[in-house]
Simulated scan of single mutants.
Amino acid sequence: MTTASSHSARAQSFNAAAAQYAANRPSYPPALFDAVEDLAGRPLTGARVADVGAGTGIATALLHARGADVLAVEPGEGMAAQFRRSNPGIPIVRGDGNTLPLADASVDLLTYAQAWHWTDPALAVPEALRVLRPGGALALWWNTDALDVPWLADAARRMGRHFAVDVPAEQRNVNPRLIDPSGRLDFSERVVRWSRRVPVDTHLANLGSHSIFLVAEEEHTAAFLAEERRHLLQVFPDGIAEVTYDVKLLVARNA
């Protein structure tokens, strides 16, 4: 399988796992949206926002709750269907960041939560600049594991060995030079740490909703998750995991 076809297969893999994704993926802390407002230089309340790669609407719903006039943009049929079930009052259109279904200079804020790494920056950067109003901003963020926490670092190493990868896409792609190779965007960066306490099985189901698991052979994935469950119950014998995340946020304003 070529790199391009592998990337496409991973991007499309979420559609069959949309319910699992919605039920188990982590949310985002209020401090993240405070940071978005600070770096964008405007409040979310009343802002016209397009949330691209909205998935099941985890970030979209939080933007809506902050008072934004938000439109979701999602390419996947399965994810969009789950979005509509979870967020019936928020509009959603089908599309992606490479060819945004939005008018020129139509939004104050363009957001990508866990989604920019599925775009082609050579296409997505000009599209972002096209649809942003003067003074608008592009905000990208990723929930990443806090790898200074020993059990998370150990888990990441086990996953890397099992799936023959160095680090997950969310860790690997939070780099302004990769996000915008053209250098047209001037990003400000912020890291927001937060944590959640969830059953070990919820944490494992979250892991299983990532594309590296979804495209692997079922037996290969099941073997890892079973062994990982054994490791985690040694760390968390009460069955409740304390999972710490660093949200990596990048915001670039449109001149």
Rank of each mutant, 00 (worst) to 15 (best):
T2S: 12
H7M: 11
S8G: 09
A11S: 03
A22C: 07
R25G: 02
P29Y: 03
P30E: 10
V36S: 03
L44H: 05
L44Y: 03
T45H: 11
A47V: 01
T56W: 02
T56F: 06
R66E: 14
V70W: 00
L71P: 03
A72I: 00
V73R: 03
P75F: 05
M79T: 14
M79P: 09
A81F: 13
F83D: 11
I90D: 00
V93C: 07
L102C: 08
D104F: 02
V107S: 09
V107L: 08
D108M: 08
A113K: 02
A113Y: 02
A115V: 06
A124S: 06
E127F: 05
V131R: 00
L132N: 06
P134H: 06
G135I: 08
L138W: 01
L138E: 03
W141R: 04
W142Y: 06
T144I: 12
A146V: 11
V149I: 09
M159G: 10
M159Y: 11
R161V: 14
H162W: 14
V165T: 15
L178G: 05
S182T: 14
D186L: 12
R190Y: 08
V191G: 08
R193Q: 14
R196A: 14
R197I: 13
R197G: 11
L204V: 08
A205Y: 01
E217G: 14
E219S: 14
A222W: 05
A223H: 09
A226S: 15
E227G: 15
Q234M: 03
V235T: 13
F236R: 06
D238S: 10
G239T: 10
T244V: 13
